[in-house]
Design a protein around this nucleic acid. Structure first.
Length: 177
DNA sequence: GCCTCGATTGACT
DNA sequence: GTCAATCGAGGCA
């Protein structure tokens, strides 16, 4: 599938705006393609739910780096979650990809942040990669005519009051709550 | 160095 | 509805 990737400048903006505008885009890993239908925004200081809320650590340092790269981390002893790094270098931010609608070569379920990484074969080896080119990338989508719903983020204990979760209304692949 | 608990999922009452 | 699995990051209770 030949489609233009989103440039670094797309990601180098406010995290919430990037999260919203990633909806409808295509996430591509090698020959597998899925449309992003659900995202969440994570900031740094001032966002208690973010890994970066207490400053830089070996794990979260990619969130402080340049925009447009991948942030993949291991959680609950079982799962990998995929984020796209946002904001200018030095300022932490990332968008968690929570659900995909399968487009090409995807068999497994993609209606959850850990399910989609399993379906696409994403692991810790895919941390800190350039999403504007290479095997793992995000491209412009095709459909812009959908309604976006804003809700509180899922699965966190602090910082759950802000509406930082975004998804495409009526899409069948939204994660279960 | 130790120990708690997580940006989840799937199995079970 | 409730809860165990499973392991590594990171805070230090």
């Amino acid at each position: 599938m030949t489609m233009k990737t989103l440039p670094k400048s797309f990601y180098e903006r406010d995290t919430k705006k990037v999260a919203k505008e990633l909806l409808g885009r295509y996430l591509i890993h090698k020959n597998k393609v899925g449309m992003i239908v659900e995202t969440e925004a994570y900031y740094g200081l001032g966002d208690p739910a973010s890994h970066a809320s207490r400053g830089m650590t070996p794990r979260n340092k990619v969130m402080f780096g340049p925009a447009g790269r991948s942030y993949v981390y291991f959680i609950y002893g079982n799962y990998y979650l995929l984020n796209a790094v946002t904001e200018k270098e030095g300022k932490p931010g990332a968008v968690l990809i929570r659900a995909l609608e399968p487009i090409q070569n995807i068999d497994a379920k993609t209606n959850g942040p850990a399910r989609l990484t399993m379906a696409l074969g994403i692991t810790r080896e895919h941390n800190d990669l350039d999403l504007t080119k290479g095997d793992l990338k995000i491209t412009e989508g095709t459909d812009n005519k959908f309604q976006i719903i804003r809700k509180p983020r899922i699965g966190i204990k602090q910082g759950a009051e802000e509406l930082l979760r975004f998804y495409i209304k009526n899409n069948k692949y939204i994660s279960k709550t």
